[in-house]
């Protein structure tokens, strides 16, 4: 008996208003893999993550998580949004942001237990932010902010992680910490799916790559996906992306 894939996406279509953003996306993402999603701007990379999370309603298609149909949000799905998507002036400390990762487990009306707080501390250690634990988040550098999000993802303790551009605009220390954490999670059999913008570093980071441009153009090991022919198809076909909008 083989294990069900981490995520099985069948015939997924998503539209904003009358404009299709994703069409007929079929993917089977295996467990314990580090998977990158690449594609030009507006290819629907973030939308794919949001559709899996149920943040964006899907028009058609079904999504299975670890062999079970996914309905709405699921605690076995972890999410690391883009860094710019939140207000870094918000009055919370680094430790409080990390602790937010436990809120799904902790439940309503309760505070995180001592065990959860230890977990938060360990996650902060792992990303090298323990001395910043009680700082307010606006005092962090961009890389430290990204590591805060990473620590939060760690305490979420999910089976499948969805990360939106985790490598964007970070320093070398953070990149190192990020890769270390991702590899660590993969070693534990978890699956990591990350939207990535830099084609040059794809082969360095990921086991498998999805080349996305409204459809899945290719999926497989980086050297098979990132061929000149396929990239040409993905990055030069501007005409298809906006056809419905102009109508």
């Amino acid at each position: 008996m083989t294990l069900a894939p981490a995520l099985r996406i069948e015939h997924l279509s998503v539209a904003y208003d009358d404009r299709p953003v994703l069409e007929n996306v079929n993917l089977e993402l295996g467990r314990g893999k580090l998977i990158g999603i690449v594609g030009p701007n507006g290819a629907g990379k973030s939308t794919l993550l949001k559709a899996i999370l149920g943040l964006t309603p899907k028009l058609l298609g079904s999504i299975e998580l670890l062999g079970e149909p996914l309905r709405g949000a699921d605690l076995r799905l972890g999410y690391v949004p883009q860094r710019e998507s939140v207000d870094w002036d918000f009055p919370v400390t680094v430790a409080e942001v990390v602790a937010m990762g436990t809120y799904g487990r902790v439940g309503w009306f309760r505070r995180p237990s001592a065990a959860e707080r230890t977990r938060v501390q360990r996650a902060l250690d792992q990303v090298g932010l323990s001395e910043y634990a009680s700082r307010q988040i606006s005092q962090l550098s961009g890389g430290q902010q990204q590591r805060t999000f990473l620590a939060r993802a760690l305490v979420q303790d999910a089976e499948v992680y969805l990360l939106d551009e985790p490598f964007a605009g970070i320093d070398a220390t953070t990149e190192e910490a990020l890769i270390e954490v991702l590899l660590d999670l993969r070693a534990q059999g978890r699956t990591l799916v990350a939207v990535h913008h830099d084609l040059g570093t794809v082969a360095k980071f990921f086991d498998e790559v999805v080349l996305l441009h409204r459809h899945v153009l290719a999926f497989g090991p980086p050297d098979e996906v990132l061929t000149p022919t396929l990239l040409e198809v993905a990055y030069s076909s501007k005409s298809t992306s906006r056809s419905a909008w102009g109508a």
Partner: peptide
């Protein structure tokens, strides 16, 4: 109406 038309077209294609 335009949205539902677009949706129907997408559904047909799918």
């Amino acid at each position: 109406r335009r949205r539902s038309r677009a949706r129907a077209a997408l559904a047909e294609k799918a």
